[in-house]
Nucleic acid binder design. Structure first.
Lengths: 191, 191
DNA sequence: AGTTTTTCTTTACATATGTAAATGACTTTT
DNA sequence: AAAAGTCATTTACATATGTAAAGAAAAACT
């Protein structure tokens, strides 16, 4: 719980009263590797704070092909955010890549606290803004960098993770096939 | 100005007092076709509400290649948002594709109003969330749709615009070369 | 109207990446 | 230890898309 409070206050400071109310809606939970936190087609209602472990968010095409759009490492929040905001059915999957310790809360209960504590609304705004910035960075990377450069950036952004998850998940995150990632790796190891 | 107030209230209702303070920081402005609202390397400080006209936001690679990441049509806000949020140098360009009527405000002055009017902070949160959702949709489209499908979606999302801006801007928005867009158009016109 | 500039299309070629299938290396399970 | 399963690499081939350049068409300008 301290990890959560620390994270929140680093995004945007909140009062002690807000801390108490906010912490109170979270419950400890665990996710085992391959467990889903969110799946396609459901109406999402919860958010979670990741204390340990790794997860991925991905889409699946009609033909069943998966595309890893985000990799989550702690400390961070996870949620089927678009679905929570729009109240539409969820389009994405969120799945644990390793066992995770999380703190889970109901999204509606969290957002109800915004009325009571302006500082929490501000925190939420800043968090949302940071999500936007992260997405924009990722967008720039996908468009402006080659697959090889994205691979290098993945290694930098997620140190050590490469050895803990299958390579096809990394390939999918980079937007290439495992075959292509294998070619890239070969290329890098040669000279 | 009514257009702006209508837009804001549709995102998240604000009080009359907030309306007055908010409107007060905006000034009418014009952009002529090809004018830049934001350019790479500067520290951004302003936001604008677009009343009429069209704009594009784009990146430029080291080799000078451009990639249109967003097309703006009214009513909407434009800003080098990531730069405003992070206070880092701006990475993107925003340029008018057609003459535009805009309402311009200083970002800092706008955000200072959040302290005074909680409803404006909420509006800002919801706006930020909607940007996030839009970005996610775009991301899904880029990854899951073919260039041909994205072209169809462009025509649907921006009716009539195709006839008013050069095709290479559309190609860039779709993530393909003008050559490839030309091939796609030919393909579509054949059967 | 004629000239210049801009834009779109087409061609030929190069290249990156995908697909599918086979192989080999590791793990895990029994 | 053997068997089964998972994963990474490799091969051969197909394909989409990029690059560069030329030509055609359209628009803008004088």
């Amino acid at each position: 719980m301290e990890q959560l409070i620390k994270y929140v206050n680093e995004v945007s400071p909140i009062t002690k009263e807000a801390e108490d109310d906010f912490l109170n809606i979270f419950r400890k939970g665990k996710l085992t590797r391959n467990d889903y936190f969110a799946t396609y087609g459901e109406y999402s209602s919860k958010i979670a704070f990741v204390c340990s472990g790794t997860l991925r968010a991905f889409y699946r095409s009609k033909k069943g092909q998966e595309y890893n759009k985000t990799i989550f490492i702690p400390p961070c929040f996870i949620a089927a955010y678009s679905s929570l905001i729009t109240r539409n059915k969820n389009q994405i999957y969120i799945q644990a890549l390793e066992d995770c310790e999380v703190l889970i809360a109901n999204y509606t209960r969290a957002s109800e606290l915004y009325d009571k504590h302006h500082c929490l609304e501000r925190f939420s705004r800043k968090l949302s803004e940071s999500f936007f910035v992260a997405k924009e960075h990722r967008e720039i990377d996908i468009v402006l960098l080659s697959a090889t450069e994205r691979y290098a950036k993945f290694q930098k952004d997620f140190p050590g993770l490469e050895q803990r998850i299958p390579q096809y998940h990394i390939a999918s995150y980079l937007g290439v096939t495992p075959t292509q990632l294998s070619r890239i790796r070969k290329e890098l190891s040669l000279p």
